[in-house]
Nucleic acid binder design. Structure first.
Length: 586
RNA sequence: GCCUCGGUAGCUCAGGGGAUAGAGCAGCCGCCUCCUAAGCGGCAGGUCGCAGGUUCGAAUCCUGCCCGGGGCGCCA
């Protein structure tokens, strides 16, 4: 509808230009917005005020001239000039009739743009290190990314969802060592567990897997393991040096083959755990992209070669640097350390290149806010690789803090006393978790109120919306009980009977759904959709209290049922995009 | 110090050039002989952090300052 009105205004301006009323050179950046106040119609256009100065005319005078030239449309009832020069458009009953008809006809597809009409998007999200269970911070990235992906798809973009698996590097080595130490413990060795190793109970679970597969084959005496190692932190030493030495010791004692075996079991177990966790949360990926594969496939070498060829690499102090500061970053970045190992950033560059080569549209990164420093360096990398940096889109998700009984939950990864995503899902349920995670702007810190999320009352927005859907279903159940049937054809013919205020409000709101979706997609902002659904639910509840649905009047009853069904459909469609269920009853 | 996100009602947050700044919760007052009261209606509540600037018009854009979260590694 918005686009339709923009088109009408464009035509009117065209006539005025042709007739020389306004200059040919006047730009036509037409803005049409849904109004906040119904007294201002349904859509408002500010074009007269924008053009008034260059047209050398008073805004209201220009508005009048535009109004006179706007072509007639069956979907527009009337246009008014109001305030400082707004053109207020009132949609017609015919338009509202079309809206309900379209919703009922398209069903689950209502609001969806034709598939694949927009450029593809490769979205990468979560990508947490596979060294432990996902925690509540990852949960927000997961809920946000999955919702954005669904919304983009609905808006007409082909979407690929990827999880980048950091299966290479020191953290993974620490996990492997942690597992092996627990394995030794299970085998009866009394061996000290380092401060910096992974403390969680899941490490025992993995150790048990190692034991069931390898028996005592990997066992070594405790003194062999710890003898001559630098002191750990609580022994007045350095925790980092201690764990690094322990990694080297582990490799030496086990040998490459056995070490890799432990490493592989740990990695596989963690990925499987994360995959399952996210799957239960309704978050699915098309590809789990291995960092290691960048090494084995030669992609990393090729990416570096590309930078080298374009003159962006330089050797300094034995390390290879990427001259990022010449491409907009605030400092240069090491890609190969003086010990010959490539950095994490080097992998990022290779992955970036691979993404841009595979996807002709945008590479969308969902980062935690703590990663914002990566933005300029990845853009620099894109430039250095000869790629268009504007094809990269970064969305930073701010932190989530849990509250219980008004108290902030303290979390520390170190001690293992963090709340996992699984804990959260168990406590509040998947629906509440998904909704709460996206109900605030992702750019906003999130205070996650556990008590509110668990509440079965209207104060809980998830229940409030779901209840609206369930209420509608119960009306239809009641209808069936009474032996009556819903006749949508009668309802459509009688749609003009829906003239009560709450009905009019709801009709208009439902018609805005496609625009809301488009807006949410463009802004990568699922909270826009979440708020909209809450509005729909509120308007429905208001209507429900205002009117009786199952009335004797066939026309009126069916018209109302059409609107109720359309409302349920929009709620279902919208909730589906943010991963929340629409229950039949509650 | 630099980068980044934020500061809007008692609380949590929408609105991000337009018309009297909105919602939920909390508070107060009402509404079930009737399809789910897990609901609805109403009242009250605001120097949009501060100061300048741009504009016909600023909560919104620009600059500076104040306050808070986060980040600034040859870590991953």
């Amino acid at each position: 509808m918005r686009a339709h009105i923009e088109e009408l205004v464009t035509q009117a301006l065209g006539y005025l230009k042709r007739d020389g009323v306004i200059g040919d050179d006047i730009g036509t950046a037409i803005q049409v917005e849904p109004t906040k106040d119904r007294a201002h119609g349904d859509y408002a256009c500010n074009i007269a005020m924008v053009l008034a100065k260059t047209a050398k005319m008073a805004p209201t005078e220009l508005a009048k001239k535009i109004l006179d030239r706007v072509p007639a449309s069956k979907r527009v009832k009337s246009i008014e000039i109001a305030g400082p020069g707004f053109l207020n458009f009132f949609v017609s009953g015919h338009h509202l009739k079309i809206v309900v008809r379209e919703i009922l006809a398209k069903g689950a597809d209502y609001g969806r743009a034709p598939a694949n009409t927009l450029p593809p998007v490769l979205i990468e999200f979560v990508s947490a290190n596979p060294t432990g269970p996902l925690h509540v911070g990852h949960g927000r990235g997961a809920a946000y990314g999955a919702s954005v992906a669904s919304i983009l798809e609905a808006a007409g973009h082909p979407v690929e969802r990827e999880y980048y698996v950091n299966d290479d590097g020191r953290q993974m080595d620490i996990l492997a060592v942690s597992v092996w130490l627990r394995y030794l413990e299970l085998a009866g060795e009394r061996v000290r567990f380092p401060d910096n190793a992974y403390q969680g109970d899941y490490v025992y679970d993995i150790a048990r897997q190692v034991r069931s597969r390898h028996g005592d084959d990997l066992r070594h005496h405790a003194h062999e393991v710890t003898e001559g190692l630098p002191a750990d932190a609580d022994q007045e030493g350095d925790a980092e040096a201690h764990i690094d030495a322990l990694i080297a010791r582990t490799r030496a004692l086990l040998g490459d083959e056995q070490y890799e075996a432990v490493f592989a079991i740990a990695l596989e177990a963690m990925i499987e755990d994360i995959r399952q966790d996210l799957g239960e949360f309704g978050v699915h990926f098309d590809r789990w992209y291995s960092e290691r594969s960048l090494h084995t496939s030669g992609a990393l070498e090729q990416a570096l070669a590309k930078l080298e060829a374009k003159g962006w690499l330089e050797t300094r102090n034995g390390a290879v640097w990427f001259k990022a500061s010449e491409l907009g970053d605030d400092k240069d970045r090491v890609v190969v350390r003086d010990n010959g190992r490539s950095t994490y950033f080097a992998s990022d560059v290779a992955y970036l290149l691979d993404k841009l080569e595979r996807c002709s549209g945008q590479a969308l990164y969902i980062f935690g806010a703590d990663h914002h420093g990566y933005v300029p360096r990845l853009k620099a990398a894109a430039k250095g690789l000869g790629q268009d940096p504007d094809r990269l889109d970064f969305q930073l998700v701010q932190f989530a803090v849990l509250y219980r009984e008004g108290q902030k939950l303290q979390m520390s990864t170190r001690s293992g006393e963090f709340v996992t995503l699984r804990d959260l899902r168990d406590e509040v349920g998947n629906d509440a978790a998904r909704y709460f995670y996206v109900m605030r702007s992702h750019e906003q810190h999130l205070d996650f109120d556990l008590d509110l999320a668990k509440s079965n009352a209207n104060e809980n927005p998830v229940f409030y919306i779901q209840y609206a859907h369930a209420r509608i279903q119960s009306i239809f159940a009641k209808l069936e009980e009474s032996g009556q049937r819903h006749n949508p054809a009668i309802g459509e013919a009688a749609i003009s009977r829906l003239d009560a205020e709450p009905e009019q409000v709801l009709l208009r709101q439902l018609g805005r759904y496609p625009e809301v979706l488009e807006n949410a997609a463009q802004r990568r902002a699922p909270h826009v959709l979440a708020h909209y659904l809450h509005d729909i639910a509120a308007e429905f509840h208001s209507w429900y209290n205002h009117s009786q649905f199952l009335v004797d009047d066939d026309d009126l009853r069916n018209a109302r049922l059409n609107l109720a069904q359309a409302t349920a459909q929009v709620l279902r469609n919208g909730l589906g995009l943010i991963g929340v269920s629409a229950p039949e009853s509650m």
